[in-house]
Amino acid sequence: MKNLTNILFASALSVALISCDKSDPSANNVTLHFNNTFKDKTIVLGDANSTQASINTSAAGQTHQFSELKYVISNIRLVKTDGQEIPYNINDLDKGATVIDHSKASTLSYVLSNIPAADYKQLKFGLGVKPELNTLDEVRFPNFYNTAGKNDTKMMWEWGTGYRFTKIEGFYDTDKKKLSIHTGSTLDGKRENQATYVPGVDAYRDITLTLPEVVLVGKASTVIYVKADFDKLLSGTTNTITLRSGTGPDDNATPNIHTADGMVQFVDNLGGNGKSNQSGMFSITHVKN
């Protein structure tokens, strides 16, 4: 009898020891925190008459303010100091993509879990959804479909059966004309397959950001503070844009920008042109180790 008690005791002890030994899983969490700003100030949303809303002035001298601000982040990768890239559920929109909605504080932080313990020097992600995954597949990715598509989010492009990558609503100039800028890809299929190829705009942009200091994963949970500076929307590295209202091909302040080459100008400002500029409006302010 005594023996049995001993055995039981021993096993209980070892179980306890093993579980103690297992380190805190949050040590392998990396939180991406998004701060959406005009230059250095966090944006305050508001309607046309709001006295609180942040008002920004573009390089071309146009005042503008936002009432809605959303964008999709996906294809997230962390690069180790030795150069090895660690992909984070890059082919699973349910587990590896998110909609940043400035009006919902909870969406501004996105937690990457189970990141292998190592030192990291770079963060990479996509603004938007890469072409291979940019079809509305509710069966495959029900969670992302529902976050992106549900009534108040409206982050899908019904006619193109793909996702919207950025959705900005607001007002510009002193008479507060409506501004509505949606970006998203319109192309479909592959150029090699002429029978199914729909020529169009690829609005997905790959972002590469070097961390100001190495992020040490495995000891305690870490945070990377990403700044998204929407001042760049009109006054970007690639283009200086003047907004215009109307229904002509050059009138870019309304959703018809997604129809014209005008859309690409906004996309390049927000997400970089994919060539000389790989960061667009994004930068990293600091990290918390």
Binding site: W159, G160, S180, T186, V198, P199, G200, V201, T247, P249, D251, T254, P255, N256, H258, T259, A260, D261, M263, V264
Partner: peptide, 21 residues
């Protein structure tokens, strides 16, 4: 006559090419 909706741009909505407006 042109559809007054700002959503309309004809083929240009798809290709993003000015000539397709």
């Amino acid at each position: 006559p042109i559809n007054p909706s700002t959503e309309e741009a004809g083929r240009g909505r798809v290709t993003g090419i000015r000539e397709d407006y």
